[in-house]
């Protein structure tokens, strides 16, 4: 047999495939169609079963959870501050990825970089792996890559699903902050504002809040020198001026006085034991 180019080999193989199927294959109906029909019935039954379990174990009022979560939570309210954002489960991996990367240096890597690279790799796969070999034992790179992808997606999804977050704007929490962070009395108004305006949806403060979109922890933000009350007030007023395109612009919803109070609060936040 003459040595043939890879493309010729692939073409010959597909030709063999077509001949083999013609000669030894079975007709789609009834063999494969039987399998497909049974499988489809299983799929529909599973969907109906999930819907039934979800409905019959949950209550009529908002937020009354059954085995599969509530029918709906309370109506959307852009003004609330105490709600923890949570996407549907198949975005948990992305959601958790965002906690690993911190604003501003590497957050783009988490939000856009890694998903884009994954998508491009998937699209390019048939052109990266052009060998004819299909047996798993002879495709070690593909097998290891598959195991790594499944493992990391699994771990990220699990982490995203089980991360506990505490949010709260109650007085006890603010009292705790005043105490633990050794805050002066004039920082109280800013602390209350901080808890009420939704900062905690993205920022962590003394272990409370969330860590979304790579937002930094603010527990000891005042200890990073060179900032000061004015800087914080201007930053919160319009983060765009500081090159931050993610954080909402609070200059529209908060007054000058409010912004200054927040500035005092953040400037006074020097971390537990760092105040003194």
């Amino acid at each position: 047999m003459a040595v043939r180019s890879p493309l010729e080999q692939r073409r010959a193989q597909h030709q063999r495939y077509k001949e083999d199927v013609q000669r030894t294959g079975k007709p789609f109906y009834p063999w494969a169609m039987f399998h497909d029909t049974v499988m489809s019935l299983v799929v529909v039954s599973v969907i109906v079963a999930l819907a039934c379990i979800w409905y019959f174990t949950s209550g009529e009022s908002p937020g009354e959870p059954g085995l599969l979560g509530p029918r709906f939570t309370s109506e959307a309210d852009p003004g609330t501050t105490s709600f923890i954002p949570r996407p549907d489960w198949y975005f948990y991996f992305l959601f958790y990825l965002l906690r690993i990367f911190k604003w501003p240096e590497s957050v783009i890597l988490g939000t856009v970089g890694i998903p884009t690279i994954l998508l491009l790799l998937m699209l390019a796969l048939p052109f990266l792996d052009v060998r004819r070999e299909r047996r798993l034992l002879r495709r070690p790179v593909a097998v290891v890559a598959a195991i790594l992808v499944v493992l990391s997606m699994g771990i990220l999804t699990y982490k995203g699903a089980t991360t506990e977050e505490s949010l709260g704007g109650d007085e006890a929490l603010i009292e705790e902050w005043m105490e633990a962070n050794n805050l002066p009395e004039e920082a109280r108004a800013g602390a209350v504002l901080y808890a009420e305006t939704g900062c905690q949806q993205c920022h962590l403060y003394l272990g409370a809040g969330s860590a979304n979109l790579g937002a930094p922890e603010l527990t000891a933000i005042g200890a990073e020198g060179g900032k000061g009350v004015d800087y914080f007030a201007r930053y919160i007023g319009n983060p765009r001026q500081f090159g931050n395109t993610v954080m909402p612009i609070y200059g529209e919803s908060l007054s000058e006085e409010n912004l200054r109070q927040m500035g005092i609060f953040l400037d006074a936040s020097k971390g537990p034991g760092g105040g003194g």
């Binding site: 954002p85 959601f95 939000t111 979109l213």
Partner: peptide, 18 residues
């Protein structure tokens, strides 16, 4: 509802970081 609203806030912001 609250779940869907806040998840979409985060989702839209994520798109905004591209």
């Amino acid at each position: 509802d609250q779940t869907s609203y806040w998840a979409s806030v985060v989702g839209i912001n994520i798109n905004g970081t591209a």
